[in-house]
Structure formats: C-alpha cells, structure tokens
Computed example of a mutant assay.
Amino acid sequence: MQKQKKSRARLLHQYYKYTGFYAFIWDNTKKALIPLSVIVGILLYINYKVMSINDMLLYITQNFSDTFIFTLFFISESILGLLPPDIFIAWTKSTQSPLLYLSFLAVLSLGGGILSYYKGRTLLLIPKINDYLEGRMSKHIRNMQKWGGFLIAVGALLPLPFAMACLAAGMIKFPQRHFFVFASLRILRFVIYGYAIYSALS
C-alpha cells in the first residue's frame, strides 16, 4: 500500500515536471517578486526618509474608514488582485483588533476568489464575453485544464494572481466542491504572511 502511494506521487511529480508546472510557478513567482520588491523599496524609503511605517499605517487608520479600506481590498481581490494583500495585512497591525481585522481580510480575499469563480461560470453564458475571455485568458484556461486544483492552491498561497486562477477555474467549470477545498488555502496564506509581517513591524 505504501509503495503504491509513493508510485503515485512519483507519477504526479513526473507529470507536473513534463507539463511545465514547476517552471510556471518559478517564472510567475519571479515576475511577482519584481513589483513586490518595488513596493518594499518604496515602503523602506518612506520609513527612513518621510515617516515610519507604523506612523503611516496609523495615519491611514485615522483618515480612512475601515469600510472604505475593506471595500477597496475586496474589489481588488475580486478583479485581478491589483493591490498586494501584504499592504492591507500590515494595516491591520495598527488597528484596535489586529487579529479580528486580519481574519476579516482573509475571509474577504477568499470571498473575492469565490466571486471570480462564479463570475467565470456565469460569463460563459454570454457568447460575446465568453469569446473575449477565452481569447484573453487562453493560456490560463489551458493551465487550469492541465493542473486544476494545484494551480488554485498555488494562486491561494503564493504571490500569484489568485482571482485569475479562480476565474479560469470557473470558466472550465472546475468542480465546486474541489474548488472550495483548494481555494480555502487562501486563509492559510494570511496566517503565514500575517505572522511574518506582524513580526517585522514589532
């Protein structure tokens, strides 16, 4: 029994290797690290030249309502993840209830992915939009067909476009039950990144 499990794992490893899954993860992670590095550089510059990051986050907390920030975050997570979640995670550190706010962010992020999934399933019913999306997202759709849930899991955990993976999953009608299992890993991302960012800001 144990031998069969190892054999299956080896076959899966070979499949993902031959189909370019590992190369895809590495290439997209490198692409994601570039804008992330730019953002970190800007924050460090502000921290040392303008005001401390803690003061900046406190300023945001005092001048923007929680509703506005949560709404902005949800919109970003529902479209293409235009704004890095890490900025919002750092913001929660300066609030009165950091863990509660961080948990709410995680739920909103997962909700944005779920919305993208159902958006992908619904938009298929409109021929013109379906044709447009299939043309624009042909690469993502092919990748989703090849790698399925693992691509959703990677999008959920790594700095890759989670909403895009969820949209592609909806477009190929990836099974809902399996989608929710893999997408729920998004919560784990906020736990890990929250711990790292909170430690850095302490």
Rank of each mutant, 00 (worst) to 15 (best):
S94A: 15
L158Q: 06
T92Q: 04
A156I: 04
L125Q: 14
L157G: 01
H13S: 09
L108D: 02
L151F: 13
I25F: 09
N143D: 15
L80S: 11
M51A: 13
K128P: 00
L57F: 12
G149F: 04
R121G: 00
L44T: 11
N130W: 05
L12E: 13
T67A: 11
I129C: 03
K6R: 13
A153F: 15
I129W: 12
C166Q: 04
V50H: 10
R8T: 09
I46R: 02
G81F: 05
S202G: 10
G120M: 07
L36Y: 06
F24Q: 02
G41Y: 07
S76K: 04
A32M: 12
P85L: 05
I87A: 15
G148H: 08
Y118F: 15
I172V: 14
R189I: 13
L72N: 00
F70W: 08
L11F: 09
L108P: 01
T29R: 03
D86G: 03
S97R: 11
N130R: 15
A106P: 00
C166F: 06
W26K: 10
V50Y: 11
F70G: 03
S65I: 05
T61P: 00
H178R: 13
L12D: 10
D66K: 13
L102D: 02
P127Y: 05
K146F: 13
F104A: 09
H178Y: 12
I89V: 15
P159R: 09
T71W: 11
P159Q: 06
L105M: 13
S202L: 12
W26F: 14
Y48E: 10
I60Q: 00
A90S: 13
Y193T: 10
K49Q: 14
P35S: 12
E134C: 11
P85G: 12
G112C: 08
